[in-house]
Design a protein around this nucleic acid. Structure first.
Lengths: 231, 231
DNA sequence: GATTAGATTCAACGCTTGTTGAAGTGTCAA
DNA sequence: TTGACACTTCAACAAGCGTTGAATCTAATC
């Protein structure tokens, strides 16, 4: 598979008239939603163009090959989100200085910016998160794309987690982060399965309820493994 | 999308000569691996047939349309796995009777049969689990296929978890199960990302290490949320 | 008002897709 | 040996794919 090295402002029409930029965004919105639903290979450029209300050829004209459009979708909100999460982490650390913040605060910095985005009126954030969930669990896309867009941020967070438990082996920190990441990813997916399993007691798009429980849940898990040891 | 109502023994060649049955299995093996890597739409029947060493037309002859082949792949090992997990749960419950087993024992019954399968010499189980991970986080496949093949088993386990915490609201039980399910799913995916993030300290196919930590981690999370309450 | 560059449309390209019907091959029963 | 039947191959189908080059339109500059 080809490398993707372009940035989100690449391709034509990136700094053109408002009308053009609006169409670019419409294409990204449509691609975001459709990719989230059906994955990279389950969507055609013609579907995306139809939903965006533009000609097929325009998708290639703006973004180049399909893979670069996919990359542009991931990057658009990824940059915003990573910045918000990093700011939240910095705030938590400043507040607790010179001590490290509690693991709850670190996890909260990881999750709450998502809640704000997902609960907003803009449906796009939910589509984006669902796409991340899909891609994250794919061997090919997960390794290639998620790493590219998120590794830098994740390293900041795992380093902060290590500072919460300075005596814990790195192995334990990373497996604990892995648990957090997996649970979060399934929440993103918003599959509606918990609604069915729980007979309506839970709703998969009720992100606040999910995160309210996820924070103490994961914090307790971290402490169990990173302080008491895995046995 | 069309309904799939056939069972795994449907289609032609299901109870024919050993040579024919062997070819059926080869097709399922190839489909399993390729679907796990690239998803339903990212794989063509011609790729599957080539990897299985058979003619394309045979895939349709044996299994019918592509979607039914996909279903047959999910069902083949799903039935075996569900039985092993249910047996493990029953054993844990009998051992603890008349009390409910500890939450650790319930989680262990949920996880250990997977470890045995994944650590076996048969690569097929790892492919199958990676496929489940991929499908589980897809809005369309997750709802349709995972529910069909796993809901019955999951209801047994969530009921057992509820018996561990009889005073906890069902909402809390299901959100905790959700966390377990998500973390497990990411482990299945075996993306190799934890290897990179941890600089080699962890290996994503080291399922035993993952489960050894996941059990105490998740048990502590359950207790925090289901006893202490989400605050 | 002419010129020019970018935005947009249209039509087509070569190629691949899932599926199928007809033809061919093997195998066991009568 | 013949017949029947399931298995296997082959070739083809219509439909759709991503992408592109030429033509057309739009709008700002000279």
């Amino acid at each position: 598979m080809a490398e993707v090295t372009v940035d989100s402002k690449s391709g034509r029409g990136a700094d053109a008239s408002p009308r053009t930029q609006e169409r670019r965004e419409k294409i990204l919105d449509a691609a975001e939603e459709l990719f989230a639903t059906s994955g990279f290979d389950g969507v055609t450029l013609r579907q995306i163009a139809r939903q965006a209300g533009v000609d097929v050829a325009l998708t290639s004209y703006y973004f180049g090959p399909k893979l670069q459009l996919f990359d542009a979708v991931l990057r658009r909100r990824g940059e915003i989100l990573n910045k918000a999460r990093l700011d939240a982490l910095r705030s938590a650390e400043e507040e607790a200085a010179p001590n490290p913040p509690s693991i709850e605060k670190v996890i909260e910095a990881f999750l709450r910016p998502l809640e704000i985005a997902q609960e907003s009126e803009d449906r796009g954030w939910r589509n984006y998160c669902a796409l991340i969930a899909y891609v994250n669990n794919s061997p090919v896309w997960g390794k290639k794309m998620i790493g590219k867009h998120f590794d830098k941020l994740v390293r900041e967070f795992t380093a902060a987690m290590q500072r919460c438990f300075p005596d814990a082996p790195a192995r334990d920190i990373f497996w604990c982060y892995h648990n957090l990441s997996g649970a979060l990813s399934l929440t993103f997916a918003d599959t509606g399965r918990i609604d069915i399993l729980s007979g309506g007691a839970c709703e998969s798009h009720d992100f606040k309820s999910a995160y309210d429980r996820m924070i103490p849940f994961m914090a307790a898990g971290f402490r169990q493994v990173c302080i008491a040891g895995k046995g």
